Computed example of a mutant assay.
Amino acid sequence: MGWVSNDHEHEGWAAAVAPDGRLSASSSGEGMLVQGITGHYQPDKMLPDYEVVPDREIIGWRGACGCGWRGELWERVTSPAAADFGRRRDFVPLDEFANPSSKVEGAIHDEWKAHLAPLEAVAGVEAAAREYNQAGRRLDKTVAAAKAAGASWADIGRAVGISRQSAHERWAEKQ
């Protein structure tokens, strides 16, 4: 299962990690699909540029994003006793699908969201700047219309919360 950012520019997922470090893009009934042909694994029948890594060979998971970001490795361990969430170790039996536990997937999702946080904050700044510029253009037009209708600089300044002189200095050249 994957996640999409608010701006639809980033897609993230909990990727299974093959022994050679390649990350899965998807899965099939035979195992995890990883891009690239090494000859170590069977090629996928539907995607000729992908190999199928058997679930039992998956060594762990990490967050991945379409932008290229990669999270830290969550290691797959072979016994419940070796599992340690604090040390990024999770037990998934070798004879089961190599999907991370819901707890690890949630932690990976949190890491991906932290990766997005600065990007989404900047997107918020961009949106606010657009709104600010639009409001400034709308204000310039309404000041010009008020002046054309006979309003004084004192009236305009009072409406905007500035002095008559400041209103004149700001908009007289735009008339």
Rank of each mutant, 00 (worst) to 15 (best):
V160W: 00
A18E: 04
R158I: 01
A81V: 06
R22V: 09
G36D: 07
C65T: 10
S152A: 10
R88S: 08
A123E: 12
I162T: 14
I58D: 00
E75N: 10
A154E: 15
I162M: 13
Q165V: 03
I108W: 00
A14I: 04
V4C: 08
A129G: 00
L33V: 02
A83V: 07
S27T: 15
G150A: 14
G150F: 14
G60F: 01
A172R: 12
A123Y: 05
L73V: 06
A154Y: 05
S24H: 06
F85N: 05
A82T: 06
A107T: 00
N6H: 09
A127T: 04
W153R: 01
P48E: 00
D84Q: 11
E57V: 08
V125T: 03
N99I: 07
R138H: 09
E105Q: 11
G12T: 14
Y41R: 14
P48Q: 00
A15D: 02
R56I: 13
N133C: 04
L116K: 07
G63Q: 04
E96D: 12
F85T: 12
A135L: 09
A83P: 08
G31T: 11
G31M: 13
L139E: 05
K141M: 09
R89E: 03
M1L: 04
S79W: 12
W69R: 10
R170A: 14
I37C: 10
S5I: 02
G2V: 09
L94V: 12
L47D: 02
T142P: 00
V92Q: 04
D20I: 14
R170G: 06
M1G: 11
T78R: 07
E51F: 11
A114D: 13
L94M: 07
P54E: 10
Q165P: 00
A167T: 07
G31Y: 12
L139D: 01
A129Q: 07
W112G: 02
I162V: 15
E96H: 10
K141F: 02
F91P: 06
D110P: 01
L94D: 10
L119E: 09
E111R: 07
T38I: 01
A128K: 14
I59F: 03
E120A: 02
R158W: 03
E11W: 03
A159E: 12
S102Y: 05
D90C: 15
I156C: 08
K174L: 05
P48D: 01
P93E: 14
R76A: 14
V52A: 00
D155Q: 15
V52G: 02
